[in-house]
């Protein structure tokens, strides 16, 4: 028996919008810790890891660990039927091949339930090692989104370099080159508007912009984004989900032949 009641149902809607274009099918794992997902894109270049902690739900009942295979496009279709202010409850029964999403309007005058077929997914769970990152950049998520979008109109890949000067995003394409440097800036009105650069040592890595642009679909989930870089490791692009957990995207770098 599984019953998870999320008052801020819009969070789940946003999570689906952020993941459905990257991953087609995924297993959602439910345990005492929370509701989580780990999945790679079809080419195994990117990985998404989601955690919504049990404490973030108004009601969280999960009698035993359960893994539910879902087609994210179909799940998104169903969640789009929920209002932005709706409370969403996810219900499942042991051994059942369906999951139910229940939507309640804030004043309880409309209650809907959508039953979705589950699927068997053979997914490999990867062990993500704890890593010391050479540099961690925290910046407004809208700024990161803007940079990725702007650079992808010039080139296909971006070189992200962190030095004492700041973080530099560079690209080149047929029409020319582009460099955007963001310096640390803590003198802002709100903490989420700050750009904070923690650097242990300089680092420079190359990534496909197509994937980074896909990650920025998570921008509505958080005002700020954290980009963690280490040489020859996948970059981690993390959006914190207020009071609940996170969505992390890992992207394998492009490596010189």
């Amino acid at each position: 028996m599984l019953e998870l009641r999320l008052v801020q149902g819009s969070l789940l809607k946003k999570v689906l919008e952020a993941t459905k274009d990257l991953v087609t099918d995924a297993n959602f794992d439910c345990s005492a810790t929370g509701f989580s997902l780990q999945a790679m894109d079809s080419s195994h270049v990117a990985l998404v890891a989601l955690l919504l902690r049990s404490e973030g739900f108004e009601h969280y009942r999960c009698d035993r660990n359960i893994s539910m295979g879902m087609n994210l496009n179909n799940m998104s279709k169903m969640l789009k039927c929920a209002g932005n202010d709706d409370i969403i409850t996810i219900k499942g029964d042991d051994g059942s091949d369906t999951v139910t999403f229940m939507f309640e309007s804030p004043n309880q005058d409309k209650i809907s339930d959508f039953e979705m077929k589950l699927m068997d997914i053979d997914s490999e769970h990867l062990g993500i090692p704890e890593a010391e990152y050479h540099a961690i950049v925290k910046m407004p998520s809208s700024e990161f989104q803007r940079i990725c979008k702007d650079l992808s109109s010039i080139g296909d890949t971006v070189v992200i370099s962190v030095t004492k000067e700041g973080v530099k995003f560079s690209t080149r394409g047929d029409i020319g080159t582009a460099n955007i440097v963001c310096r640390q800036n803590k003198t802002v009105d709100k903490p989420e508007e700050a750009t904070i650069i923690e650097m242990n040592e300089p680092v420079s890595l190359t990534f496909a912009l197509r994937y980074l642009n896909s990650f920025t679909k998570a921008t509505p989930l958080s005002e700020s984004v954290t980009v963690s870089l280490s040489s020859e490791l996948p970059v981690v692009v993390e959006y914190k989900i207020a009071d609940m957990g996170y969505i992390r995207f890992y992207l394998a770098p492009k490596i010189e032949d």
Partner: peptide, 14 residues
């Protein structure tokens, strides 16, 4: 030129 690496090159199967 540069080559796209994969996640599985870095993270082992659980």
């Amino acid at each position: 030129g540069s080559k796209q690496s994969t996640i599985t090159k870095f993270f082992g199967k659980f």
